[in-house]
């Protein structure tokens, strides 16, 4: 860490929570309370603390269940665009899609989530913080946010994030480790200066890789240099699909849960990520 970095850290040290060892990071719950429950079973054996990077709602069934589970477990949550929209009783999810059909499907899942989230839980989602700052054992400044440090709904895709751009984001946000979600596809990048960017993916839907499991990340602060690993998370996806159908959630969403391939919200994908998927 350079002198500049140290100075920034000294200025922003107050209010940062200290963490060490291994920390589990997950995002994009998207109402998938079954995957969330599986995560709460799986993660404690790998990490001492858990953090949620936002978007509790969308896509899946019974939104209140995920909110209640997170509250019950006392997991700190960063606010995602979905949480903000539902919390502030906005008309749409502010997901950031630009294609009319992507927006059509986004509107369907937003309407379902909005309708089925209790007033109490909406109030709770409205109070979530924009970002969480942590301090590692060697003074690593860790920033957890939803989309990017500069915008809650900015998509950080692997194939659209060159190193100098990421370095600029980290400089501006004054951090050494940046963790985000929002895109739903996990990736990580070690910058030439050793700093780290990780997109933790989503536990709410598969990563468009033809696999039914979902992903979260474990940040390891215990060694000489920090690192991050992605953990595949299996859950009862057939039960989720059944419950989605029972709730009359549109079939393309259910198909994604069953097949591991994205069927909607495809137009936002850059060429490289789109090429990997089935559709």
């Amino acid at each position: 860490m350079g002198t500049d970095a140290r100075q920034h850290r000294d200025r922003s040290i107050s209010g940062e929570r200290e963490v060490s060892g291994r920390v589990a990071l997950f995002g994009g719950v998207y109402n998938n309370y079954l995957a969330l429950a599986a995560l709460l079973e799986d993660a404690p054996s790998r990490a001492s603390e858990l953090f949620c990077l936002g978007d509790v709602g969308a896509f899946g069934p019974h939104p209140d269940r995920s909110v209640e589970i997170l509250k019950e477990a006392g997991v700190p949550i960063v606010q995602g665009n979905y949480d903000r929209s539902v919390g502030l009783r906005r008309g749409d999810c502010a997901c950031g899609y630009t294609d009319p059909r992507d927006n059509h499907f986004a509107a369907l899942s937003y309407a379902y989530t909005f309708r089925n989230t209790s007033e109490r839980n909406k109030d709770f989602l409205a109070t979530l913080p924009d970002e969480i700052r942590l301090l590692g054992p060697k003074g690593e400044r860790i920033l957890l946010c939803h989309g990017s440090p500069r915008r809650q709904n900015e998509f950080l895709w692997e194939s659209l994030s060159p190193d100098p751009f990421l370095a600029r984001l980290l400089d501006d946000a004054r951090c050494d480790i940046l963790a985000v979600t929002h895109t739903g596809i996990p990736w990580k990048r070690r910058l030439p200066d050793g700093r780290l960017v990780v997109n933790v993916g989503a536990i709410g839907r598969p990563a468009n890789d033809g696999q039914t499991h979902v992903w979260y990340a474990v940040l390891d602060l215990s060694g000489e240099a920090f690192g991050v690993a992605f953990i595949p998370l299996r859950y009862d996806h057939e039960r989720l699909a059944d419950e989605m159908r029972a709730e009359r959630i549109v079939e393309p969403f259910v198909k994604t849960v069953e097949s591991g391939w994205w069927t909607t919200c495809l137009e936002i994908l850059p060429a490289r990520e789109r090429a990997r998927g089935m559709y």
Partner: peptide, 9 residues
């Protein structure tokens, strides 16, 4: 732009 990377709320 190809697709807006972010859309303001």
């Amino acid at each position: 732009a190809n697709a807006a990377t972010a859309v303001r709320e």
